[in-house]
């Protein structure tokens, strides 16, 4: 994998509080990387440092491409843009110093790949949030980019708009773009993202629990009259919760490895237990979701 940008020992503090501490990470070509973490964990700060919008207090940012061009889409999508996409993109491109001809070609290309030719002459202020978000990505791609940084791109979008944007991001990746984003949406993380970086206590760690198949378990809820009959099953299960119901019947919630589930269910049925619920679960995944 070709590294396009590498961060070495990046640190940043605000008002004496360390937000980022000795962070080192690499972004590879043609990958979508998600940065997840709780509010205030420093995700946006790290994105701004990578995008060149903020300076680190210490550390080195090593660009492995001689002319690495980074596009940035901020978290806050402006709601009152009083231009049409054609006008808006034209103005942003002109401010960037692009030539008129080059700019018009690029606008046509972007409107095509984002499927927005029909909305070319409609004022952006009348667009849905999803369409506005697309415009935000388009403005970041006016110049040829190697890396696109998106701060919470799906935030506030409805399910359809999220799905549309996921398709757009996937097609951008297919076109050779690397994408670094922050997000809370697990669907996006599961379907689209190649790597997940967790930021916590100023540190970044790499994890991929969403594609982890080793830790798949099942959660079984059942009712049984005698706990003694469970003794032979104890090596397979982990009791999460138990409570007494009427008539000396107990309800248990247990977890069992995927490969032991059939054995457990068979044994329970032999002992006249009543299976109430069977749910697939992944402990690492659940631990991962506590980062949001």
């Amino acid at each position: 994998m070709n590294t396009i940008i590498e961060l070495q020992n990046i640190s940043k503090q605000y008002k004496g509080k360390k937000v980022l501490e000795n962070i080192s990470l690499s972004v590879y070509a043609h990958q979508i990387v998600a940065l997840v973490g709780k509010n205030g964990s420093g995700k946006s700060t790290l994105l701004k440092i990578i995008g060149g919008l903020a300076h680190p207090d210490a550390g080195v940012i090593d660009k492995h491409l001689p002319s690495l061009n980074i596009g940035y889409v901020p978290e806050v999508t402006p709601s009152q843009i009083l231009f049409t996409p054609q006008e808006y993109l034209y103005h942003m491109g002109t401010i960037s110093g692009m030539s008129r001809k080059q700019l018009q070609q690029r606008i046509d290309y972007l409107l095509t790949i984002f499927n927005m030719q029909e909305a070319r002459h409609t004022r952006i202020v009348h667009f849905s949030k999803g369409m506005k978000q697309k415009i935000m990505i388009m403005q970041a791609m006016l110049e040829e980019r190697n890396l696109l940084i998106l701060d919470e791109p799906l935030s506030g979008l409805d399910a359809k708009a999220q799905s549309d944007l996921e398709d757009t991001l996937a097609s951008l990746k297919d076109n050779g773009l690397s994408i670094l984003l922050t997000c809370h949406e697990t669907k996006l993380l599961e379907n689209l993202v190649d790597r997940v970086l967790v930021i916590q206590n100023g540190q970044v760690s790499q994890t991929n629990p969403l594609h982890d198949t080793e830790n798949h378990q099942n959660r079984v809820i059942f009712e049984i009259s005698s706990l003694k009959s469970l003794e032979e099953l104890l090596p397979f299960i982990e009791i999460q919760q138990q409570r007494s119901l009427n008539n000396d019947i107990k309800e248990l919630i247990v977890t069992v490895k995927q490969e032991d589930t059939n054995t457990l269910l068979l044994a329970l049925l032999h002992q006249n237990a009543s299976i109430k619920q069977l749910l697939p679960t992944n402990r690492k995944k659940e631990e991962f979701y506590t980062h949001f």
Partner: peptide, 10 residues
């Protein structure tokens, strides 16, 4: 504010 950041970037 959001648009200002974008315009400054350009």
């Amino acid at each position: 504010e959001g648009q200002k950041v974008i315009t400054i970037l350009h």
